[in-house]
Simulated scan of single mutants.
Amino acid sequence: MRCKPSTNTKLTLFIVLLLVIDQAVKFTVKLNMELYQSIPVFGNWFIIHFIENPGAAFGMQLGGTWGKLLLSLIRIAAIVLIAWYLHRLVKKAAPTGVLVGGALILAGAIGNMIDSAFYGLIFSESTPYAAATLFPEGGGYAPFLHGKVVDMLYFPIINSTWPDWMPLIGGREFTFFSPVFNIADSYITVAVFYIILFQRKFFLK
């Protein structure tokens, strides 16, 4: 008689699949694109634009070497906390939607942590003139926990100018949506919106 996979096993396999997708895209970009290179995918609305983010999501960061280390340690602590809470939700037999949302958030956090922890060790520096190489002879571009997160998804759907009558920003150009992000960021964003919109009742209880 064949045993059905447990909920923990299913969630683990789901998280591993999400991580494989995230890392496969990042490796492809890192090894084949020059820094700041852009590849239009859907006109000017969807562009693969390669940048590296030394900080948190959407370019937020803490300054200096110690700031980067602190940010990495905060990421690790957050991953441990999310994993513990997700395990607790499994024990409480939480709805499938809640568990999937939690798995997406955990996968997103781990995906970016992998970049921060290991990319500096295994990749050479990406430059505007050359793509990076994997396992370079002289070693990587940064020590453990000091790597940069690879971002590439850019959706400049609207490019316009603020009306002149608006104070402070009138006449300035603006782009919506301007941040460049990655698949791991998408996991977190989608999960948070999904939980807020469809799983509020569970957490309110």
Rank of each mutant, 00 (worst) to 15 (best):
I21P: 08
L121M: 15
V100T: 09
I51H: 10
L13N: 04
A103K: 00
A94D: 08
N53P: 03
I47C: 00
L99H: 04
V41F: 10
A77C: 14
N112G: 06
A130D: 03
K92R: 14
V90A: 01
I105Q: 00
Y129K: 05
Y141H: 11
F118G: 07
I114S: 11
I47H: 04
F123D: 09
I76E: 15
L106S: 12
T12C: 06
F118E: 04
A83R: 07
L19Q: 04
F27I: 01
D115Q: 15
A83V: 15
L145Q: 13
L62D: 07
N112F: 11
Y141C: 02
I105P: 00
T65F: 08
Y141S: 02
T7I: 05
S116E: 02
L145G: 12
G43F: 00
G55I: 05
Y119G: 10
P5E: 01
E125G: 14
T28R: 11
N8W: 07
A94T: 00
K10L: 06
A117G: 11
T9H: 12
I48F: 07
N112D: 05
L89W: 05
F42V: 10
I15C: 02
Y85F: 15
P95G: 00
R75Y: 08
I47Y: 10
I76P: 14
D115S: 09
T7R: 04
L121C: 07
P128I: 01
G102F: 05
K10Y: 01
Q23V: 07
I82L: 12
R2S: 12
L145M: 13
V16F: 11
V16R: 00
T133Q: 10
D115N: 08
I21E: 08
N112I: 03
P128E: 02
L11Q: 00
I79M: 12
F14C: 03
W84Q: 13
E137P: 12
V41E: 10
V41Y: 14
F118K: 14
P54T: 00
F135W: 06
W45R: 13
R2M: 06
L31P: 11
L86Q: 10
G43A: 03
A142N: 11
E52W: 04
K92D: 15
V29A: 01
S116L: 08
W66T: 11
L86M: 12
I74Y: 07
I51R: 08
G138T: 04
G55Y: 01
A94E: 02
F42A: 11
T28G: 15
G147S: 12
L18F: 08
K91D: 10
A131S: 05
A77L: 15
F144H: 07
G111Q: 09
G108R: 00
L104V: 05
L104R: 06
L69D: 10
Y85L: 12
G111N: 02
